[in-house]
Computed example of a mutant assay.
Amino acid sequence: MAKRFTDSKIQSLKPTNKRAILFEDGGRGFGIRIEPSGRKSFFLEYRFGKGKERRNRVLTIGKYPRVSLTKARSIASQSLAHVEQDVDPATQKQTLIIANRDALSVADLVAEYIEKWAKVKKKERSWKEDERLLKKDIIPAIGRKKAKDIRRRDIVLLLDEIVERGAAITANRVLAVTRKMFNFAVGRDIIDASPCVQIPAPSKENRRERNLSEDEIIVFWDKLRDAKMSEEIRLALKFLLITAQRKSEVTDSEWKEFDLEDKWWT
């Protein structure tokens, strides 16, 4: 007969060559299994249904110590309350597992945003820039996570990393497109709320109103030929002028972003 569980009591339980089952206070209901491998997991045994349909049911709560004793006891208590309301906690758990399995990952959301919104609402150059930013900075960092599980802190830390690599203005652009994408997700009932709410732009931007005239562009291009600089820098400056991209975007770019056959920078 087991008394009320404590952490020290659970930690002292030793495995045998057969599965051992202990119930708290020696009764039925909340218990713990000890497998021959040494794995310990909490469970709840209960009866559910009415009349002839009433059956014994078992809800696996979770492995110890990943699920703490306090947490497990709380889940057991909530589950018994659900039983009183004619809600089967085991079926409810399975429904949640299926819902979580079917929930979109951030990478899935990026694809849907590009196909369903960006390509429809934006010009090609603009949506391709959205796609490039998302593929470069969002998918590698949080692409495998479920979109519904992303929190504001995840976005803040991601932006911090971009700023720390010396691309503060890029961080602003990533925040803008990420905010737009999560707003899109809210509108399509993929998530309940955007994690980008109340996140300020990481960097202050100085608007540049000055544009080079056609004659100035010609002079700049010609002077580059005799300028004292490495060929790499000369080509980078020409690339900046031709593409009108930000310096950080060019300096941070990688060869895998370039499709030389189709002549696209993605």
Results as ranks from 00 to 15, higher is better:
1 M>E: 11
6 T>W: 01
6 T>A: 02
11 Q>D: 14
12 S>Y: 04
14 K>A: 03
16 T>F: 08
16 T>R: 05
21 I>G: 00
27 G>Q: 14
28 R>E: 08
29 G>N: 10
29 G>M: 06
30 F>S: 00
30 F>A: 02
31 G>S: 14
31 G>F: 09
31 G>K: 12
33 R>K: 13
35 E>N: 08
35 E>Y: 15
37 S>I: 00
37 S>T: 06
38 G>P: 09
40 K>D: 07
42 F>D: 14
46 Y>Q: 00
47 R>W: 13
50 K>A: 10
51 G>R: 03
53 E>T: 02
54 R>Y: 00
55 R>V: 08
57 R>I: 04
59 L>C: 00
60 T>C: 08
64 Y>A: 15
64 Y>N: 11
64 Y>F: 04
65 P>L: 01
67 V>M: 15
67 V>Y: 14
67 V>T: 13
67 V>R: 08
67 V>H: 14
70 T>R: 12
71 K>H: 15
77 S>M: 13
78 Q>H: 14
78 Q>Y: 11
86 D>P: 10
87 V>L: 14
90 A>C: 15
92 Q>N: 03
93 K>S: 00
94 Q>G: 00
94 Q>P: 01
96 L>P: 03
98 I>G: 12
100 N>F: 05
101 R>T: 14
102 D>L: 12
104 L>I: 03
105 S>K: 03
108 D>A: 03
109 L>A: 01
110 V>D: 06
110 V>L: 02
114 I>Q: 04
115 E>I: 02
116 K>S: 03
119 K>T: 01
120 V>K: 09
120 V>E: 02
125 R>T: 10
125 R>C: 03
128 K>P: 07
129 E>A: 06
132 R>V: 05
132 R>D: 04
134 L>R: 06
134 L>S: 07
137 D>Y: 14
137 D>E: 06
138 I>V: 11
139 I>G: 08
140 P>E: 09
145 K>D: 04
145 K>W: 00
147 A>Q: 01
147 A>S: 02
148 K>E: 07
149 D>W: 00
152 R>N: 06
156 V>E: 13
158 L>Q: 12
158 L>D: 13
160 D>S: 05
161 E>D: 14
161 E>M: 11
164 E>C: 01
165 R>S: 03
169 I>W: 06
170 T>C: 07
172 N>K: 00
178 T>R: 12
178 T>M: 10
178 T>E: 13
184 F>V: 11
184 F>E: 12
184 F>Y: 14
185 A>H: 12
188 R>K: 04
189 D>G: 06
192 D>C: 07
196 C>A: 09
197 V>C: 07
200 P>A: 10
202 P>A: 02
203 S>L: 01
203 S>C: 00
205 E>S: 03
206 N>A: 10
207 R>N: 08
213 S>G: 08
215 D>N: 13
216 E>C: 05
218 I>M: 13
219 V>R: 13
223 K>L: 11
223 K>Q: 15
223 K>A: 11
226 D>L: 03
230 S>Q: 05
240 L>G: 10
240 L>W: 05
245 Q>R: 15
245 Q>C: 15
252 D>G: 05
252 D>F: 01
255 W>C: 07
258 F>H: 09
260 L>Y: 14
262 D>P: 02
263 K>D: 12
263 K>V: 13
264 W>M: 14
265 W>D: 09
266 T>D: 01
